[in-house]
Simulated assay, not measured.
Amino acid sequence: MLPSFYQSCLKSQLSDAQFITLEILVNLLQQERRITIERLATLFPQPILFESRRRNLQRFLSLPQMTPEALWFPIAKQWIKQHIPRGQILQIVLDRTQWNRHNLMMVSFVYHNRAIPLYWTWLDKQGQSSLRDQQSVLQPVFRLLKKRRFVLLGDREFHSIELAAWCVAKNVLFIFRLPKSTTVQPEAGAGFSRLDDLPQSPGIPEQYLQIQVTQKRGFGRHNLVMYQKRAYAQSTTPEVWYLLTNLTDINQVLFHYDFRFCIEPGFKDFKSGGYHLEDCHADFHRFTALLVLMTIAYSLASVQGKRIRKKQVQQYVGRVKEPKRAHYRHSRFWIGLYGSLWIGSLNL
């Protein structure tokens, strides 16, 4: 059973039969963890021929309202309101993942070290995204979060000074990681230098305020933070972070950017660690609809995992923490997803 605010948001866009179909599909997705039309049609509880069930699901997934704007945005807005305090700054992560012929760019918000999708777009090309692609996926999110404080995080693919200038025009806080080959002018009147030529001390962050980044003209000045973690024992030397930002507090910059890496385990949850997104070969619109279903299921599993941990019964589900291990073995998503499966198997 979906939470009440999920139901009210979905029923405003779907008929009763469509809502029941969506609810069944979300439950099947949690049980089977395979986001493919073939698998869902095989298990869909409808006493008709398999081919008829498959065509019914294809027609359902082709509905015009099966989009993140229509179905997920109202839920996400209420979800953020309930689970994230009003005064807390949201970390919004922009990243891209690619497999086979698919090139997916996604904007997510961070919740308990996992990135929950907000909006996404499919790129009709291979390789990196353009400024226009990035703006098209960010604009709906900016409209959705216009009453919330947030900071946009991006890795080296999203380092362009044009994107930074666009965020400044939109009054958006941002932290983008720069490649080490980027040239900057650390002091007025000085020459341009590569970032990796600037003096660096492991473990000690350095900050440059209002400097010229790249030799392109007409983009104003921004702040630069450099930081390299110390290497301990026999660990490899960590990479240096070169962070372009419009924040001035160096500690806040490092604190927020550390959350950017939450998108990587999130992508793993969508693929081999959870719903096996790579097995899906639907067309563009149905793929988008399946992602809406997956996002709803992912958010429900994350909240369920939080409840299980709050009740201190997560050790019944799996090996949560092990000796000499600094972090939990399994995330809230994993605990929520497999906890419900374990409860269901007790009926056997």
Rank of each mutant, 00 (worst) to 15 (best):
I250N: 02
Q128H: 11
S62C: 13
M105S: 04
F176N: 03
G191S: 14
H327G: 05
Q7V: 11
K81I: 03
T182S: 12
Q13R: 12
R260T: 00
Q65K: 15
C9W: 00
A231G: 06
K324I: 10
Q212A: 12
I84E: 01
G266I: 06
L28Q: 03
Y227H: 08
I263N: 01
Q314W: 05
F142G: 07
T182C: 13
G191D: 08
L348C: 13
P117H: 04
D16R: 15
R286P: 03
T295R: 00
R217V: 07
H159N: 14
S108V: 05
L29H: 13
E23A: 14
K321G: 06
I37N: 00
L300D: 00
H276V: 01
Q98D: 14
E32A: 07
I343A: 11
K180R: 08
I75T: 01
Q304Y: 09
I24H: 03
D249Q: 11
Y6C: 07
P45K: 13
S136M: 08
R33E: 13
P179G: 11
F158H: 04
P140M: 09
F176D: 00
Y338T: 08
Q312T: 05
Q135A: 10
L198R: 00
A17M: 06
A165T: 07
L49N: 11
T236W: 07
R149M: 13
L178M: 14
Q234Y: 12
K321E: 04
V303W: 10
R332A: 10
I175F: 03
A188M: 04
F50K: 14
I89H: 11
L104P: 02
L43Q: 11
I37T: 04
F50D: 04
P64K: 14
Y298F: 15
L144Y: 05
W99M: 08
W241Y: 05
R114S: 07
R332G: 06
R156D: 08
L337I: 07
G189N: 03
Q134M: 14
V240G: 00
Q46L: 15
L118E: 00
W120V: 01
L243Y: 02
A188L: 14
L71A: 04
Y328I: 06
N27L: 05
Y227L: 01
L14V: 06
W72N: 02
I84T: 09
L198Q: 00
F44K: 10
S4D: 11
T236A: 13
R33F: 10
I308P: 02
H281D: 05
S129R: 03
Q46T: 04
S193V: 15
V151E: 00
C167F: 05
T121K: 10
R39M: 15
K310T: 09
R221I: 10
P186M: 02
L40C: 08
W241P: 00
L341W: 05
Y338M: 09
F270K: 02
A188T: 12
M226T: 00
I92Y: 06
T21S: 10
P117E: 02
F192Q: 11
C280N: 15
E51H: 07
V137H: 05
R101Y: 10
V141W: 01
F174T: 03
K321W: 09
M1S: 15
C280Q: 02
